[in-house]
Simulated assay, not measured.
Amino acid sequence: MATSIKIDEEMKSRVRQLADNRRRSPHWIMREAIAQYVKREEQRDVFKQEALDAWSSYKETGLHITGSETSDWLRAWGSDDNEIPKCHE
């Protein structure tokens, strides 16, 4: 799929300079930038959906762990006594 992107002269110059510095083509720089952007936005969508799912689950069940329980659990990481806190109402 051939696609064209219109960018202003300043951005073209910046892309060319970066491409020269990296010994890559401007085309490679733009493709890499788009790929990284798309990946980041997809991950953001997944994170948002997981948060919405967790909120829905909490509203349905009332099950949760407190902030202090979470902090205690995180402080215990790397120790032998590091059980995940049990959810409760």
Rank of each mutant, 00 (worst) to 15 (best):
T3C: 11
E83N: 15
E9S: 15
I65G: 00
I34C: 11
R14I: 03
E10D: 14
Q17L: 10
E32R: 07
S13W: 05
S56V: 06
I29Q: 03
R40A: 12
M11A: 13
R23A: 12
E83D: 15
Q49F: 06
Q17P: 03
R23C: 04
A35M: 10
H64A: 06
R31N: 14
H64P: 00
R40E: 07
R23N: 13
N21A: 14
K12N: 03
D80C: 10
E89I: 15
E69W: 00
W77A: 07
S4G: 05
E9H: 13
I5W: 00
L63N: 12
E69G: 01
L52Y: 08
T70I: 15
T66G: 06
T66I: 08
H27Y: 07
D81G: 04
D20W: 07
K39V: 08
R23I: 06
R14F: 00
V46F: 10
H88Y: 06
T70R: 15
V38Q: 09
A2Q: 12
E89H: 14
L52T: 09
A51P: 02
Q17G: 13
A54F: 06
K86I: 15
N82F: 02
W28C: 04
D80M: 14
Y58P: 01
R16K: 12
W73F: 10
S79G: 03
M1F: 10
D80L: 14
F47N: 10
D72H: 09
I84T: 14
V15R: 02
R44W: 03
N21D: 15
R16T: 08
D53E: 11
D45Y: 08
E60F: 02
R14T: 03
Q36R: 15
A19F: 00
I29A: 01
A33F: 05
K39E: 14
R75S: 06
R44A: 09
L63K: 14
R75W: 05
A54D: 07
Y37E: 06
Q49E: 13
R40L: 07
D45V: 10
A33P: 00
E89F: 14
A54P: 04
T3F: 12
T70G: 07
L74Y: 12
A76Q: 01
S79W: 03
H88I: 07
S71N: 12
E83Q: 15
